[in-house]
Write a protein that binds this DNA or RNA. Structure first.
Lengths: 247, 247
DNA sequence: TCTTCGGTTTGACGCAGATCAAAACGGGGG
DNA sequence: CCCCCGTTTTGATCTGCGTCAAACCGAAGA
């Protein structure tokens, strides 16, 4: 047995979706053992990213979809005049690149906010395998649909909520996503800057900072730099929707 | 030959996608004649809607997807406290209900803004037919992806544009969509109220009205109630992105 | 240890757009 | 034809958040 082969095998094993702890969140969720095997073979490689690396850039052609294996990324839409708007934050199990299927070109930049790793999933392979495995096709459709549903939520937030509510929704959403991944729902690190939070929420960084300070002085949360603890989740929830709407 | 049968046949013929003028915009775009025939059989019925009718309501389970055949609809996301946000306007050839695939429940209301007609497309049929017709599967994925891309654009608009820009983007987008459907790109009727425009753009109706008046006095457009003419499309385009951003 | 520099906090002030109010319009029903 | 009511326009005023500015903090590097 050659050492080279051994390395490759080990590599494959490490990569395999069938042994990945994110299974239940990720694209192959709900596949049988055999189906999972077929799916495994489609993932040709994992790709490590360092903080600040681009996973893809706006305007480049779609090479593959990417499942986040570890780390944290943002995607941001660009406006020709240089404005940018963070369209989403992505963590383990999230599928990225969906916006590019329609035109074959990415319309946002995807940037790692910390050292991360993603699995490359060639779209054409995914499409042909979907034909053979109905459950996969269905699941993929559901994932796209859920992204649309998420976007509608963001529209509601951006179009008709005040600053306090936006922040509360944001924190509660993060909390919930961490919980779904087995992390604490009440204590976590914010991987993004205040400016990035602001961009996502349609606010300026100063407003984000001020609002977080308010929450803190009300005893709802405890922030210290990027470290955050939610102290009164219930009150945060109540805060959303009780004020008169701006719009 | 029984009269009943004749009627059914006529009905079928009228409904057939293969003879629908929206073909190139709609879901079956790019299918071969045979494939189109198979697709036709999937559409069990058209559904007429009167102005104000609900196509579906938030919270109800997904029965089918709907392709707009004629007319004009809005979909709006609801917030428990009664706030509502228009998430999109839909016209001929648009596919509606995509947000509900993920959870099997609609998360927005769809309401006809004028008398309209839609084709019902049962999701399960679409999925199974997609397996047989790769082009259909691909096209469906593209349609979902394009909706995601559109949503990102709306986020950019809501998160970082000033009122003037939002209106300009809105008008230019309508113009382009009418053009793609063979209507005038410079003269059309606004099917929605100022309030609905405002809700979509994250503005109040007064602001929408004022901004339209400004455009008119600058000679960019001519508005008279719901009738609208774009006089200087190029200048409207330039207007987008030239101001300092609010966010 | 000190320096540097990106990120964050906090304060003072201004403005775009919300809110309130009232008048004008226009289309459908009697 | 007129009346009525939902929609739109326009004006006056208010306010939440953006803008500008300055101080502060913590991590990385010398």
């Amino acid at each position: 047995m050659q050492p080279t082969l051994r390395i490759v095998e080990t590599e494959k094993l490490k990569t395999a979706c069938s042994s990945c702890s994110l299974q239940e969140l990720c694209l192959p969720a709900g596949l049988s053992t055999d189906e999972m095997k077929a799916f495994d073979q489609m993932i040709d490689r994992r790709r490590p990213l360092k903080r600040g690396d681009y996973l893809y850039r706006s305007g480049t052609t779609l090479q593959a979809l990417y499942a986040v294996r570890s780390g944290f990324l943002k995607s941001c839409v660009l406006h020709e005049d240089g404005r940018e708007q963070v369209a989403g934050f992505h963590m383990m199990g999230d599928l990225m690149g969906l916006d590019a299927i329609g035109t074959n070109a990415h319309l946002c930049d995807a940037i790692a906010l910390e050292d991360s790793e993603v699995c490359e999933i060639p779209l054409s392979d995914l499409e042909s395998l979907s034909r053979e495995i109905p459950a996969l096709q269905q699941h993929f459709n559901r994932i796209m649909s859920r992204e649309i549903a998420r976007d509608y939520g963001v529209m509601l937030l951006l179009g008709s909520m005040r600053a306090e509510e936006r922040l509360a929704v944001f924190l509660l959403n993060l909390s919930q996503r961490f919980a779904a991944r087995g992390y604490s729902s009440t204590e976590f690190h914010l991987r993004m800057t205040r400016e990035e939070i602001g961009s996502y929420l349609g606010l300026k960084l100063e407003t984000v900072s001020r609002t977080l300070s308010n929450f803190q002085s009300q005893g709802l949360i405890a922030v210290q730099n990027k470290h955050l603890r939610l102290l009164k989740i219930e009150q945060l929830r109540e805060l959303v929707g009780q004020h008169t709407c701006r719009t």
